[in-house]
Simulated assay, not measured.
Amino acid sequence: MNATLANYISENMNSILETWKQLMEEEEDGKFFQIMSDSMIDSTAREFGDLMIVSLTENDKDFTKQIEDFSVKISRHGWSISFVMKAMTNFTEAIYHNMEQSGFLNNSNSASYIRLMNKWLTPLNHSIVEAYSKTWERTVQLQKMALQELSASLIPVFDKISVMPLVGTIDTERAKLIMENLLQGVVKHRSEVVLLDITGVPVVDTMVAHHIIQAADAVRLVGAKCMLVGIRPEIAQTIVALGINLNDFTTTSTLQRGMEQALAITKRQIVEVEEE
């Protein structure tokens, strides 16, 4: 019976895919599905169909390897776990629909095939979800590590003046890294003024503000002054609404203005030189 079902799916893959696409386009995530290229949708769906056939006909070792490869591929597409589960559920529905429409299922065999489908698809879906979750977690962890490495360095731009550009969400782990790099950089570069640039920070809430205030206090303890630059209008409104006290900070809306003030603090300024 396994071989019969595998042959049916293989021979009717095109019609099953058409039904599946219609079901996916009706989902709430349909817009996301629609922006994908037809070739990517078709190849991914066919690979899932082939995976179903393999699970009915091949040994466990081959099946496990193909699940892992498939999970890596769909994680690179950026599909969420909920989207993956919907796709698999709808693929199952598409198979049932086509089996009923073609007469493959009838009163005499429907119960047997439904039991087989349930016994076969449930562990298959669980295996894919588990493998996908692990792959996605590894991907997110690697992205997080890359972001930490790229967005927490102190850059000397002038003698005694350094800038630390902050990018992305600041959590407790990143805040610790920022603090360490900030203090080490201040001592290493002998900075007197440090500009924390939050232009690339999407949200400044109470926790983020607390981390920034802690960083500024630490900088003062090593003999430097900390300025907060890159405060966008929406960030300023949030800070005021939350009642966050930044009175001890020199703040500016742009890095350029912050640099002008930093130069003034260190008794320097930028002047234009007239051409002779």
Rank of each mutant, 00 (worst) to 15 (best):
M1R: 06
T4C: 04
T4L: 07
L5A: 03
A6C: 06
E11M: 15
E11Q: 14
E11F: 05
I16W: 02
W20S: 00
K21H: 11
Q22M: 15
E27M: 14
E28L: 11
D29E: 14
D29P: 00
F32Y: 12
F33L: 02
Q34S: 15
Q34V: 05
T44N: 03
L51Y: 14
L56M: 06
T57S: 01
T57Q: 03
N59Y: 02
F63Y: 14
T64N: 15
F70K: 09
S71W: 01
S75M: 12
S75P: 12
R76Y: 05
R76P: 07
F83A: 15
M85W: 05
M88T: 13
F91Y: 11
F91N: 06
T92V: 13
E93A: 08
I95D: 11
H97N: 06
E100F: 12
Q101N: 09
S102I: 10
F104W: 15
F104Y: 14
N106H: 13
S110F: 08
A111I: 13
A111T: 11
A111S: 02
Y113I: 13
R115F: 02
M117W: 02
N118S: 12
P123E: 12
S127Y: 11
I128L: 12
I128Q: 10
V129Y: 08
A131V: 01
T135L: 11
T135I: 13
E137P: 05
R138F: 00
R138C: 04
Q141M: 12
Q148A: 12
L150P: 01
L150E: 04
S151I: 07
A152M: 05
I155R: 07
I155V: 15
D159V: 06
M164N: 09
V167R: 02
V167M: 07
I170P: 01
D171N: 01
K176D: 06
I178N: 07
L182H: 03
L183K: 08
Q184R: 09
G185C: 06
L195D: 00
I198R: 03
T199M: 00
G200K: 02
P202T: 05
V203S: 03
V203R: 06
V203Y: 14
M207H: 04
M207P: 00
V208L: 01
V208A: 07
A209M: 03
I212S: 00
I213H: 00
Q214G: 10
A215M: 14
A216D: 00
R220C: 00
L221H: 13
V222D: 10
K225Y: 14
G230Y: 03
E234W: 08
Q237D: 01
I239Y: 08
I239C: 04
I239H: 06
V240K: 06
L242Y: 02
L242G: 02
N245K: 09
T251Q: 00
T252F: 10
T252W: 07
S253K: 04
Q256F: 07
R257M: 13
R257D: 13
G258C: 01
G258M: 05
E260R: 10
E260Y: 09
A262C: 11
A262V: 10
A262Q: 09
T266G: 05
K267G: 02
I270A: 00
E272Q: 12
E272S: 15
E272A: 13
V273Q: 15
E275N: 14
